[in-house]
């Protein structure tokens, strides 16, 4: 009996170690992520499985806050799908990657607003007019900028565009949340606890 128990223990230990080693090396499985960012007047989306594999021919649909479908498309072989901004509001981007894999991403209205303002400034917002109407301008920096060469609006536009380009990959990386070793151990801990409770309940009968 003792040898049997001993062998049984070795099996469990071996399986556990094997699972851990295997799970740390690739440390991912299949959850699908869709990520979108605004660049100028376009919204780019990138879809991938959490294994890092890109989603090809995934269906992308864009919805307004009321749930009306605005447009749809298919991801290319780099997992990307880009479309012009359909309207200034929160946009829900939904990915269906086939076989039950799906996820969504929300582009907030203010993300779009930043880009849209710099692209098509309404007359009221131009700094030159602000300078004319206000005798003592509330924002002196903008007024002085207009006086010289580049108006503040153009500068802001250039900076926004450059920032959007630079930040896109960083934001994309933030989305790729990998679970950590603690999650695995934590989950196993929960299982031990749950089955402990079950054993306790059954033992009282």
């Amino acid at each position: 009996m003792t040898t049997k128990l001993w062998q049984w223990g070795v099996l469990i230990a071996g399986l556990t170690v094997a699972c851990m080693v295997l799970s740390i090396a690739p440390a991912h499985a299949h959850k699908v992520i869709v990520f979108a960012w605004v660049e100028g007047d376009t919204i780019h989306t990138e879809s991938k499985f959490s294994a890092g594999k890109l989603v090809q021919d995934g269906k992308i649909a864009v919805f307004d806050p009321q749930g009306n479908k605005l447009l749809e498309g298919v991801t290319d072989d780099r997992g990307r799908f880009s479309f012009p901004i359909p309207q200034k509001s929160d946009l829900k981007i939904e990915l269906q990657a086939g076989m039950g894999h799906g996820n969504q991403w929300l582009v907030r209205a203010q993300e779009i607003d930043d880009g849209a303002d710099s692209r098509a400034p309404t007359p009221k917002q131009t700094p030159s007019e602000a300078g004319h109407t206000g005798a003592a301008p509330a924002r002196p920096t903008e007024a002085s900028a207009t006086a010289d060469c580049l108006d503040a609006q153009t500068v802001r536009q250039i900076v926004t565009l450059a920032l959007e380009k630079k930040l896109a990959p960083i934001e994309a990386r933030l989305v790729e949340q990998r679970w950590r070793f603690q999650d695995i151990i934590g989950g196993i801990g929960y299982i031990v606890g749950i089955f402990g409770v079950v054993a306790y309940m059954k033992s009282r009968k």
């Binding site: 469990i12 989950g187 054993a199």
Partner: peptide
């Protein structure tokens, strides 16, 4: 069977990470 069930639940839980 409870202890055995717990061990198998753990195995199932972790196996999904083995890609």
């Amino acid at each position: 069977q409870i202890a055995q069930g717990g061990i198998l639940a753990s195995a199932f839980f972790v196996a999904s990470l083995v890609h």
